[in-house]
Simulated scan of single mutants.
Amino acid sequence: MDGDAMKGKILLVTGLAAGYVLGSRAGRERYEQIKTAWLKLYETEPVQKQVRNAQGFAKARVSAVPSTLFSGAKTIAKIAKSNRSAGQKLDATIDEVDDVKGDLGDIADGRSSKKR
């Protein structure tokens, strides 16, 4: 390798290192600006009101999920134990899964699911 090629590689590595240092410093400063602005917005009362609303909505709905899933699992277990043919069991299980899926969708949408 001749001297000019080595000098070019050294300059390239030096340039990359300088670019990395300057870029990461500028990037970090910009990140901090964005983070500060976001936190300032997040802490405003209108945003916090919506956060509380979302939390209340989720807490009210999440309590219905385990009983819906448990009820569906019990029904599927009864189907599996029944004297039906394999095809009938499969069809009934698919129907029950669809019902549970619909009930979970109702819960997520804030509607009452059917009583199981």
Score class of each variant (00 low, 15 high):
residue 52 R to Y: 07
residue 74 K to Y: 06
residue 56 G to M: 10
residue 8 G to N: 15
residue 68 T to C: 08
residue 46 P to E: 09
residue 65 V to I: 15
residue 45 E to H: 05
residue 101 K to E: 05
residue 75 T to H: 08
residue 77 A to R: 11
residue 83 N to C: 05
residue 61 R to Q: 15
residue 29 E to W: 10
residue 58 A to N: 05
residue 94 I to C: 06
residue 19 G to M: 04
residue 26 A to L: 13
residue 2 D to G: 15
residue 70 F to R: 12
residue 73 A to L: 10
residue 34 I to T: 12
residue 9 K to C: 11
residue 100 V to Y: 01
residue 76 I to D: 00
residue 96 E to C: 06
residue 6 M to V: 15
residue 87 G to L: 13
residue 102 G to I: 07
residue 97 V to F: 12
residue 24 S to M: 07
residue 93 T to R: 03
residue 114 K to C: 00
residue 99 D to L: 12
residue 103 D to H: 09
residue 73 A to S: 12
residue 76 I to T: 01
residue 47 V to C: 03
residue 79 I to W: 04
residue 103 D to Y: 05
residue 39 L to S: 08
residue 45 E to C: 02
residue 38 W to A: 13
residue 112 S to N: 12
residue 48 Q to H: 01
residue 80 A to V: 10
residue 13 V to W: 07
residue 17 A to Q: 04
residue 14 T to E: 11
residue 38 W to H: 11
residue 63 S to A: 13
residue 12 L to T: 13
residue 72 G to T: 03
residue 65 V to H: 00
residue 83 N to K: 15
residue 8 G to D: 15
residue 59 K to M: 09
residue 109 D to G: 04
residue 34 I to G: 04
residue 55 Q to T: 09
residue 112 S to A: 14
residue 73 A to I: 02
residue 70 F to Y: 05
residue 111 R to G: 02
residue 61 R to V: 00
residue 2 D to M: 06
residue 13 V to Y: 09
residue 97 V to Q: 06
residue 110 G to T: 00
residue 76 I to K: 05
residue 100 V to I: 10
residue 5 A to H: 11
residue 98 D to Y: 01
residue 14 T to H: 05
residue 109 D to Y: 01
residue 80 A to C: 02
residue 68 T to K: 09
residue 45 E to A: 15
residue 36 T to C: 01
residue 22 L to R: 03
residue 1 M to C: 05
residue 105 G to V: 03
residue 98 D to V: 09
residue 109 D to K: 04
residue 110 G to K: 03
residue 57 F to L: 14
residue 5 A to E: 13
residue 86 A to R: 12
residue 20 Y to R: 02
residue 93 T to E: 06
residue 115 K to W: 02
residue 74 K to R: 14
residue 93 T to I: 14
residue 71 S to K: 11
residue 50 Q to I: 07
residue 31 Y to S: 05
residue 51 V to I: 04
residue 7 K to F: 13
residue 109 D to L: 07
residue 64 A to F: 00
residue 91 D to G: 03
residue 89 K to T: 01
residue 9 K to L: 15
residue 34 I to E: 12
residue 16 L to C: 13
residue 1 M to K: 03
residue 106 D to A: 08
residue 57 F to A: 08
residue 78 K to S: 14
residue 35 K to E: 14
residue 39 L to Q: 14
residue 29 E to P: 03
residue 103 D to L: 00
residue 100 V to D: 00
residue 8 G to P: 07
residue 63 S to D: 08
residue 23 G to S: 07
residue 83 N to R: 09
residue 22 L to T: 09
residue 20 Y to V: 10
residue 88 Q to P: 00
residue 48 Q to N: 06
residue 24 S to Y: 12
residue 48 Q to Y: 01
residue 20 Y to P: 03
residue 96 E to T: 15
residue 60 A to W: 04
residue 104 L to N: 02
residue 15 G to K: 02
residue 109 D to Q: 06
residue 76 I to L: 13
residue 33 Q to K: 14
residue 90 L to F: 11
residue 60 A to K: 10
residue 24 S to Q: 10
residue 70 F to M: 10
